[in-house]
């Protein structure tokens, strides 16, 4: 990851969503992007130029554009039509983004387009986030990583976020090795990042 001083940045053509640029790099704001928050807090998986990434819950493509600056190919899956329009615009300017309009909880919808990826990144506002992650493991190479941004409020607003996290972690440990778990405070409230790796 590239940092200028304390600021996380990514190399690439600017002007995707009005982000600031610094010495020719695009500033990647941890308050806006959960992935940026994870890197700023010292966690995460190093993004390298040979990586292929499956990005679930791509939304408007702001974080996707930063990931695309670092890696070889991003498969960006988004379900809702309105943000998908923005995502298509981002993908038009970045040749390594494959925009897929499909439901992340139904991998059979986009399986025919998929190759094996080195990293699955998931940021979806659904109650069954762990189940969605499990369904998408079929695309992850052995030894590859999963970064799950757990939105505890989407799982259940009534329960204590810490409890939701513990349950999600236990669920993931059935099939994965959990390497790192951390809250994204102070950048995002009640969001936790879980970094796992798939067993060889």
């Amino acid at each position: 990851m590239i940092r200028l001083g304390n600021v996380l940045v990514s190399p690439g053509e600017g002007g995707v969503y009005g982000e600031r640029t610094l010495e020719g790099y695009r500033v990647w704001d941890p308050y806006r992007s959960k992935l940026a928050a994870l890197y700023t807090l010292g966690g995460g998986v190093e993004l390298t130029p040979d990586m292929r990434v499956l990005y679930l819950g791509a939304a408007n493509g702001t974080t996707v554009s930063h990931v695309a600056d670092y890696v070889e190919t991003v498969y960006a899956v988004e379900f809702a039509p309105r943000p998908m329009q923005d995502l298509l615009e981002v993908a038009r300017r970045r040749k390594n983004i494959v925009p897929i309009m499909a439901d992340a909880s139904r991998p059979e919808e986009y399986a025919p387009f998929m190759e094996v990826v080195d990293l699955v990144y998931q940021d979806v506002a659904q109650p069954n986030q762990v189940e969605i992650a499990e369904k998408n493991l079929v695309f992850l190479k052995p030894g590859g990583h999963l970064i799950l941004m757990l939105k505890t409020r989407s799982v259940d607003v009534r329960r204590d976020p810490a409890e939701v996290l513990a349950e999600a972690r236990a669920g993931l440990e059935r099939r994965l090795d959990v390497a790192d778990v951390r809250w994204l405070e102070p950048y995002h409230r009640d969001h936790a990042a879980i970094v796992c790796s798939r067993r060889e």
Binding site: T73, P81, M84, A91, P99, I100, M101, F113
Partner: peptide
């Protein structure tokens, strides 16, 4: 490969967006 895949997926997405509207 990536280029052709992108073109196909973009066309598909446009179709789905139009359908949903």
């Amino acid at each position: 490969y990536v280029d052709l895949l992108r073109t196909v997926c973009t066309a598909l997405a446009r179709k789905k967006i139009a359908l949903s509207y």
